[in-house]
Amino acid sequence: MKTLPIRTSYLRRKKIIDLAARAIFLLAGLIAAAMIVLIFVFVAGRGIQVFLPGYANAQNLGEFLTGMRWRPDLSPPVYSVLFIVINTVITAFGAAVLAFPVSVMTALFIVKVAPKSLRLFFTTVVEILAAIPSVVYGVFAAGSITRLVSGLAAAFGYTTYGGSSMLAVILLLAIMIFPTITSLAIVSIASVDRNLELGSLALGASQMETNFKVVLSAAKSGIFAGLILGLGRAFGEATAVSMVAGNKMFGPTFNLFDTTRTLTTTMLSGLSETAGVDYDIRFSIGVVLMIVILITNLLIRYVKKHIGGVTNE
């Protein structure tokens, strides 16, 4: 009955191609999903290797985790991260403390306060800030922020190491994580149910009062997500921070004008070989970094849960 020249050979080929293509798609999905596991396995593997007996210059795990010196120049070299972790946490949280209020207020401004015609302009400002690569931020920091810090230090009677200091790192990180937090805050504030606002206004509150008391609470979930993301970026930022940190060999640094060292700057400093303790120890630091990020994430989620407030879900 059919007049169409449908060749069975084509149909057979079509079936095989279909099965093969679906297998390839599946494979791609599995590879992508496996990567996080592989990262963990390989980085942790090489990082832990350093502490195992049988390794050439095996390090002492206890010393690594509790000491306060990073001296690759000594022989035998001393590698301890505790003070570095403390520095990292201080600088990251310091940056968050600076950036968070500015970010949230800016997001509130863009969504609720800015005249509609200017909204695009300000959103673009945030987007451009988000798009600037770290190295460019680093150059800016090394050129401008350090000078600012030197000037400030002189005014207070301190000296700095050319401006490279903990304060410079904190300022730099604050600037870098600002767009991250702001973009998420903008999305979150913009999606607050209009009815909540209307309810508040109908009760006699002004727009600004409503913004602060109702809208921000309702957007809490997304804003905290932005904070988590921002902190993650602050912990993981490497190249820009390296240009203004100073890489102090011991610590921790509590003086704003003193040089400092973070987990990431340590991972980037003095890269000369691609083998040996000096190289492999960076993997160990990488593991420490991931653990710090993980713990911080869990902590913030815990805090968020106990602050409560209206959710948008």
Partner: peptide
């Protein structure tokens, strides 16, 4: 539908 069954001849 025809193309999915492998018919490519434009005349057909």
């Amino acid at each position: 539908g025809l193309r999915c069954q492998g018919i490519r001849d434009m005349k057909i």
